[in-house]
């Protein structure tokens, strides 16, 4: 790990000052964000992800502790200098009005531009670069109000990029996007963090994508703890499962995802390992069946054979065997045979 982090904290307490006593959300946080690192911040609703991001960006004062921006205490840095170092993308909706996308991105140049906000050739160049980086050039001249959610989010990110900051903090930028758009955005941000050596922190609810894209994970628990580590390490040592522990869901270590926690009533033996077996397994789990390794425990067994053009599911139930040529037929048969005992 690099030695000089862009942004670091020591004994940081975050929360809200209230009249009687402070409402502490998390305390004693020791965090460090390195240049060129893509960190995902996970945690259940209300665990304080947004509060942490607002605190790290200097919008909200910490209850206690220090935040250090490249060797200087964050609180002592003038707003304009801070804006040159930290850019943010927030969850709040932006009132757009008669603003075109280009003008919005150009607001990111405010820390650099003069009194009246005129743009220098370098400013313009940087705006162009930011628009190209998020592939938003095509709709830069359009009004922000007319853009789709995904396009607007790209413009928000371009605005932050135009700010030329070395630390970028994003609060749930993928929240309103569909899955392909989310994947696109995550891989884009990861690429930007690496290529432009930006220390990038992104909060998300999308555990699956975070596990796939993040260089490191920060997980905030409901108890106000912050767990850090490489995604795979957290998955393997069970800390991930513990952080999201809930009586209704269960961490599936083999699949690397959570699933609804139901005790299966019947078990199926399925030795095959291929794409079709993965989806067959998902179908079975959805219907409430468990997969077992021992043939004796199983109510029936499924053998998958054939090839992609003519797949075959051979179901051995007691003594007789049935063959299905599509997963639809298989699911139909299982449902009619077993679901209504």
């Amino acid at each position: 790990m690099a030695k000089d982090p862009q942004l670091s904290t020591s004994q940081l307490s975050i929360g809200y000052p209230l009249k009687r006593e402070n409402k502490t959300i998390a305390s004693d946080l020791k965090l460090a964000l390195q240049a060129g690192e893509f960190v995902c911040l996970l945690g259940p609703n209300g665990s304080g992800k947004s509060t942490l991001i607002r605190t790290l960006s200097g919008m909200q004062a910490p209850l206690a502790g220090e935040i250090d921006l490249k060797g200087h205490p964050l609180a002592e840095i003038a707003p304009r200098e801070r804006a040159k170092a930290i850019s943010v993308v927030l969850t709040e909706t932006i009132p757009t009005g008669t603003m075109d996308a280009y003008s919005m991105v150009s607001l990111g140049r405010h820390p650099y531009s003069g009194w009246f906000g005129g743009l220098s050739p370098h400013d313009k160049q940087r705006i162009e670069w930011a628009l190209n980086a998020v592939d938003a050039k095509a709709f830069a001249a359009r009004q922000v109000a007319e853009l789709s959610d995904g396009e607007r989010q790209k413009i928000s990110i371009a605005r932050a990029l135009a700010q030329e900051a070395t630390v970028m903090l994003l609060d749930e930028p993928t929240a309103f996007l569909d899955l392909p758009r989310r994947v696109e955005l995550m891989s884009l941000l990861r690429k930007l963090a690496h290529k432009e050596t930006i220390a990038l922190l992104l909060s998300t609810h999308d555990l699956d994508l975070a596990l796939r894209f993040a260089d490191r994970l920060w997980i905030m628990t409901e108890g106000g703890e912050l767990i850090q580590g490489y995604p795979e390490a957290l998955a393997l040592d069970g800390r991930l499962a513990k952080a999201f522990a809930n009586k209704n869901i269960q961490w599936d270590e083999a699949l690397g995802s959570f699933r609804a926690h139901t005790e299966p009533c019947l078990y199926v033996y399925m030795p095959s390992q291929c794409t079709r077996s993965t989806w067959t397994r998902r179908a079975l789990e959805r219907l409430g069946y468990g997969i077992t390794d021992s043939e004796s425990k199983a109510t029936f067994s499924i053998q998958i054979s054939g090839n992609t053009e003519s797949p075959q599911w051979n179901v051995t139930h007691k003594d007789h065997t049935k063959t299905f040529s599509s997963i639809t037929d298989l699911i139909d048969w299982i449902q009619t045979t077993y679901t209504n005992p």
Partner: peptide, 23 residues
């Protein structure tokens, strides 16, 4: 007229305005 730039920033809301260095 002296406030043209910060007023532009305020259009984004107080938090965004602060994030680009506006008091």
């Amino acid at each position: 007229m002296l406030f043209v730039k910060p007023l532009d920033a305020l259009l984004l809301g107080e938090h965004y305005a602060e994030s680009v260095g506006t008091r």
